[in-house]
Simulated scan of single mutants.
Amino acid sequence: MSRARRGRLPVVDATTPPVLVLAGPVTRTEVAGLCEEVRALLAAGGAGLVVCDVGGLGPPGLGVVDLLARLEVAARRAGGRIRLRDPDPALPALLDLVGLRFELEGQPEQREPALGVEEAVEPGDPAL
């Protein structure tokens, strides 16, 4: 987390993941540089995670899917992963269609139950 002090830079602890802002369209020659940047961010930070702000990539297409898949592979090879921030509403559906799963910022992780969800109990159910 970061905390701002008066007249000073914010204090950032090791659990705050670095952010890579992606602005599109990204050319094929730029992909290798972005993969290297993800590896460098993972090596420099202690969070094991890089947040990719994909809000500036424009409408999703197969080029965006290819870019994100390559960034994820680079992150996994470096011992980390990426999380997507501000995706176009159609991007998660497109990624799901091609069989790719990405963690989206602001959504609970797969293994965590959503906050505020309670299990309903039917009258007559035995107590556990």
Rank of each mutant, 00 (worst) to 15 (best):
G7M: 08
G7C: 06
G7L: 08
R8H: 13
R8T: 07
L9D: 15
P10G: 10
V11M: 10
V12S: 08
V12R: 13
D13E: 14
A14K: 06
A14T: 14
P17Y: 06
P17G: 10
P18M: 06
P18S: 14
P18T: 04
P18L: 08
V19M: 06
L20K: 01
V21S: 11
V21H: 06
L22A: 14
A23C: 02
A23E: 14
V26H: 02
V26P: 00
V26L: 02
V26S: 02
R28V: 10
T29G: 00
T29L: 02
T29D: 14
V31M: 06
V31W: 04
V31L: 05
A32K: 07
A32N: 04
C35H: 01
E36T: 05
V38H: 04
V38L: 03
V38W: 03
R39K: 13
L42T: 12
A43P: 08
A43E: 15
A44E: 15
G45E: 14
G46D: 14
G46S: 09
G46R: 13
A47N: 09
A47L: 03
G48L: 10
G48C: 11
G48N: 12
G48Y: 04
V51F: 03
V51G: 07
D53V: 06
V54W: 02
V54T: 08
V54C: 01
G55K: 02
G55W: 05
G56Q: 05
L57I: 03
L57P: 02
L57C: 08
G58I: 03
G58H: 03
G58W: 04
G58E: 06
G58M: 04
P59W: 09
P60Q: 10
P60S: 09
P60D: 07
G61H: 07
G61E: 05
L62W: 03
L62P: 00
G63Y: 00
G63I: 01
V64R: 03
V64P: 01
V65W: 07
L67Y: 11
L68C: 12
R70C: 09
R70K: 15
L71S: 08
L71V: 06
A75H: 09
A75N: 12
R77V: 01
R77L: 13
A78G: 08
A78Y: 06
G80P: 01
G80D: 12
R81A: 15
R81D: 15
R83K: 11
L84F: 03
R85A: 15
R85H: 09
D88F: 02
D88K: 00
A90N: 00
L91M: 01
L91E: 07
A93S: 10
A93N: 01
L94K: 00
L95C: 15
D96W: 00
L97H: 12
V98M: 05
V98L: 08
R101T: 14
R101D: 15
R101A: 15
F102D: 07
F102S: 13
